[in-house]
Write a protein that binds this DNA or RNA. Structure first.
Length: 323
DNA sequence: TCCTGTTTATAAAGCC
DNA sequence: GGCTTTATAAACAGGA
């Protein structure tokens, strides 16, 4: 099952969707962003670890816009490791093909969302966080904790096991200042998604066990911590859906949720419906986009496929479906 | 002594 | 500017 960290530059994802939808609405064949995309020669020299963050330039190289895109992929949208022993390899996907589906267990949901936009073939750039000690994994520490828990395949694990899994799968933390362990402990204590399970008297060792609170289990999409979907207003008159009013964090790390209403998309003009969908997907962990459908997780606030279908009913036979 | 766990405080970044 | 999220630092207590 794919995973994806909460992206910082979420707006970018919506931009891409809007671009896609715009193509669909205009009834045009999606065009490449840049002719340079058809040439992949530059990729041989491309590395996110390059001392030249701008990457290669010149004929056959990506445009500055595409370089920006790649940087965003590298910093904001790397795929997550599978929540298992084979974790810690991120694949950067560039201008996708519909090859990878959302059910793929080794690639992130972004990789299922983005590549389905019918554009260009996909080169991959692999980031091995397991061996690269210079690059900090782009996953929140809550996500790392969850990955460790899922990788253990145990209902509960100890703090030391979490440490061990993180250092084994993310070399960065092996050489990092030990303060990250303090952060891990802080998160375990503060984040309500994690629950402490006291050790029984017959169980040896220090400390207790930790597990994901079942009440908040849906906060983790395949190991990636995802705060409840909070669809912000992007259009006046529209409020998204937040399925759970409970705060995620306690004390000084408190979090609030806003009361929301299910939008009546059918009552909105086409342009607004398109924006609403884009805004909604902006807050969704992943989505599959193909010529015919947009698929988002079941936890997505919209429950009515008819609503989303109504957002892009032109040109036929294009439809957008929310499962 | 070291590890574990809690609590408080602060900062950066993004969003509204 | 305020709020939220995330990360970091530090102090402290208790247990192995």
């Amino acid at each position: 099952m794919p995973v994806l960290p909460m992206p910082r530059a979420k707006r970018f994802k919506a931009d891409r969707l809007e671009m896609y939808l715009e193509n669909q609405i205009q009834g045009s064949t999606p065009a490449p962003i840049d002719d340079s995309l058809t040439s992949l020669d530059w990729l041989q020299n491309f590395s996110i670890f390059s001392s030249h963050p701008e990457g290669p330039s010149g004929p056959g190289c990506p445009s500055s816009q595409e370089k920006l895109f790649l940087r965003r992929l590298g910093t904001d949208f790397p795929s997550s490791p599978a929540a298992g022993d084979t974790a810690a390899t991120g694949m950067l996907r560039y201008l996708g093909s519909p090859v990878i589906s959302g059910s793929d267990s080794t690639v992130g949901p972004l990789l299922s969302w983005y590549p389905c936009i019918p554009m260009q073939p996909i080169p991959l750039v692999e980031v091995d966080y397991k061996t690269n000690l210079k690059v900090k994994p782009p996953y929140s520490q809550a996500s790392l904790i969850c990955m460790a828990m899922q990788a253990s395949k145990q209902p509960k694990i100890t703090l030391s096991t979490i440490y061990k899994w993180i250092t084994e799968n993310f070399c960065y933390y092996t050489h990092a200042e030990p303060s990250w362990k303090n952060s891990i402990r802080h998160i375990l204590s503060h984040n309500k998604c994690f629950r402490k399970v006291p050790k029984q008297k017959e169980e040896p060792g220090k400390g207790g066990f930790w597990q994901i609170d079942p009440e908040y289990a849906d906060m983790f999409v395949n190991g990636i911590f995802k705060p409840k979907i909070r669809i912000q207003k992007r259009n006046k008159g529209f409020q998204g859906v937040s399925p759970d009013p409970k705060p995620l964090l306690s004390k000084n790390n408190r979090s609030t949720t806003k009361s929301t209403k299910t939008p009546l998309l059918a009552t909105k003009p086409d342009s607004m419906r398109r924006d609403i969908l884009a805004a909604a997907l902006d807050d969704v962990l992943w989505a599959e986009v193909t010529v015919d459908t947009v698929t988002v997780p079941p936890t997505f606030g919209f429950g009515l496929s008819e609503d989303i279908t109504a957002t892009c009913d032109h040109p036929p036979p294009t439809t957008l479906t929310v499962l």
